Amino acid sequence: MSEMFDAARWKPAPFLPEADARDGALIFVVAVLSFLACLMALAFVAADRAAHGWAQQLVGEATVIVRPKGGESPDAAAARAAETLAGVPGVSEARALEREKAYDLIRPWLGDVTDLEDLPVPRLVTVELDRRNPPSAATLDQALKAQGLDGVVDDHSLWLKDITRAAWAARWLGGGVFLLIAGAAAAVIAFATRAGLTARRDVVEVLHLSGAEHALIAKLFQARFARIAAVGGTAGALTAAAVGATLRMAGGGEGLTPALPIAWGDLLVLLPCPVAAALVAALAARFTADSMIRDLQ
């Protein structure tokens, strides 16, 4: 009699068990996808900061190539050009580069030239500009011509355009990769939801016959897979944060490369990862469950 059914002690099994043998694999997949998305976010923030820093440097600098005219020596022409440009409104400082530095710039192109004194090597003048109100290249050129100087002004606008285009390309590429990762995560959750509903199809039909609404069943799957995705997202974010911290400590303030100067504050962009993973999983599970349950009706 002790082995007979005891109605007082009997408890029905939950429709979705709290733990499943396949949860570990699903959490691992979500964690890997979240890790990749977090790395992409870190790279995006660091690259955007680097591009902005380079653009600010280019906006605040200009280079002038000075060629001597008549009997004037190259050094005298460069000194006079620096003095002229220093008086232009918006110029913080103008300095003529030393002759040795000018030679060092052209040696990689000319090879091992023993005597550069016989070559008409132009002199360079570096100009630091006021970033808030920098003068245009045309203004600098007019100032040089007013003093009878033969100079070519390079305000780095060409390089600035290239950096701007590269920054926009990086933004679009990062956004596209992020959407692909989110889509992959949604597909994985949708597959798991379909598998779970297929395994419990008979129970779903009985629940419908008992008057249960399909929204209630869909919410059960939504909550379950959102919780699993949150765990995987947390694991992926923590791993990415560890990688980011390692790169920051190994590379110092500039990171391992000037193109990716990771800062400690960049790790804050990883905080929404568990919430984002749970949201993607909840939406994917809800839409998949709603669609399948309606087909069963």
Rank of each mutant, 00 (worst) to 15 (best):
V231D: 03
H208G: 15
G251D: 07
A223F: 12
G253Q: 13
A187T: 11
R200Q: 11
A223P: 08
L268G: 12
V243C: 08
L268K: 11
R201C: 06
A237V: 03
P258T: 10
A245T: 06
G211S: 05
G196N: 00
F225W: 00
I217W: 01
P272D: 07
E254Y: 03
T257H: 14
W264P: 07
R227A: 15
G251A: 10
L260M: 09
V206K: 10
G233K: 06
G175P: 05
K219E: 14
A226D: 03
A184S: 09
L209R: 03
A186Q: 03
A226C: 04
I262A: 02
F178Q: 11
G244W: 05
G196R: 07
G244F: 02
A192F: 05
S210A: 15
G183V: 07
G183Y: 04
P258M: 11
L267M: 00
A199L: 15
R227M: 09
I189L: 05
I262R: 01
A186F: 08
Q222L: 13
M249E: 14
V177I: 09
A235Y: 08
A195R: 15
A223G: 15
A242N: 04
K219P: 01
G183W: 08
V203A: 15
G211H: 04
L270Q: 02
V206L: 15
L256T: 10
G183K: 09
Q222A: 14
L256W: 11
A199N: 13
L220E: 15
R227C: 07
I262Y: 08
G232W: 03
P272G: 09
R224G: 05
I228S: 05
W264Q: 07
L207Y: 06
A226T: 02
G236P: 05
G244I: 06
K219Y: 07
L209F: 08
L247D: 06
E254L: 14
R201K: 10
V177N: 02
D202W: 08
G251Y: 06
L180Q: 06
D202E: 15
V204G: 02
G253F: 08
R201H: 12
S210T: 12
R194Q: 13
L256P: 00
T257Y: 12
A230K: 00
E205I: 08
L247E: 09
A240G: 08
G265S: 11
P272M: 10
A186E: 09
L180C: 15
L247V: 13
A263V: 09
S210Y: 07
L247W: 12
A182L: 12
A241F: 07
P272Q: 05
T257D: 14
A195Y: 11
V188H: 04
A212S: 09
V206H: 12
A237K: 05
Q222K: 12
A263D: 13
I189Q: 06
A199Q: 14
K219S: 14
V206Y: 10
G236A: 03
I181K: 02
G236Y: 03
A237W: 04
A212D: 05
E205F: 04
T239P: 01
V269P: 06
A185W: 02
F225I: 02
F225T: 01
L268N: 12
G233W: 03
F225K: 04
G176Q: 10
I262D: 01
V177S: 02
V269D: 02
A226E: 00
